[in-house]
């Protein structure tokens, strides 16, 4: 408790006659990075909730044009399973990183990136079909407006995650990851899990309802 004594010295007086404060119990809390990421994800929940509300409120208010019936459930199930699988692989990756097994980390990390890119490719394929064959664009009707906005923003978040993971993969190929990069990888994995959960909601609202 050296620090503590320094603190009291400034006021002078013999320390023995003064009341001595109780010891300070160290606090167990998340660190700054974790709180920062959690609050970011918290704000993202609010953002996506708004887009979901807009979809639920408006997607049936169409004067003309295709509705959610043109969507392909099997395709959506396929892309969904890719993204769900990527949540497992990213977990395996960060688990390996925590135990210092860098090679295994790089392997699962790369697999996660591949799954993410495959998911995006699936979305691109779906959109291509919708635009070219069904004539559904963002300006076609309200289903188009709300669908593309919600799914599009999710895809944008997946893309952001893929880019972040690629950067970390590049760093890990150049040298072993240090403390800062490991924290970065762990935070990106939180983000990735979140993007996954958002997709489950989006999938339920758009494809199952």
């Amino acid at each position: 408790m050296n620090q503590q004594n320094d603190y009291y010295q400034t006021s002078g007086g013999p320390a023995t006659t003064l009341p001595v404060p109780p010891d300070i119990a160290p606090e167990h809390t998340l660190n700054g990075h974790e709180w920062g990421m959690l609050s970011f994800l918290f704000s993202e929940v609010a953002f996506f909730s708004t887009l979901v509300v807009a979809y639920v409120t408006l997607h049936n208010d169409n004067l003309s044009g295709p509705t959610s019936e043109v969507l392909s459930l099997p395709l959506a199930v396929a892309t969904t399973s890719l993204l769900l699988a990527s949540s497992f692989t990213v977990h395996l990756a960060t688990h390996a990183l925590g135990h210092g097994r860098n090679a295994i980390f790089k392997l699962w990390w790369a697999v996660t990136i591949t799954l993410g890119i495959a998911f995006l490719a699936g979305t691109a394929y779906e959109w291509y079909g919708l635009v070219v064959h069904d004539g559904l664009t963002i300006s076609r009707n309200l289903f188009g407006s709300t669908f593309y906005t919600l799914v599009g923003f999710h895809a944008l978040h997946v893309s952001g995650g893929v880019v972040a993971m690629l950067i970390i993969l590049g760093l890990s190929l150049a040298k072993a990851l240090g403390q800062a990069e490991s924290t970065g990888a762990r935070m990106v994995s939180w983000y990735w899990h979140f993007v996954d959960v958002v997709w489950i909601v989006v999938f339920t609202v758009i494809y199952l309802a």
């Binding site: 998340l30 700054g32 990075h33 974790e34 709180w35 609050s39």
Partner: peptide, 8 residues
């Protein structure tokens, strides 16, 4: 949030 919760 991060400052107040983690840096007191």
């Amino acid at each position: 949030v991060a400052t107040i919760l983690a840096m007191r």
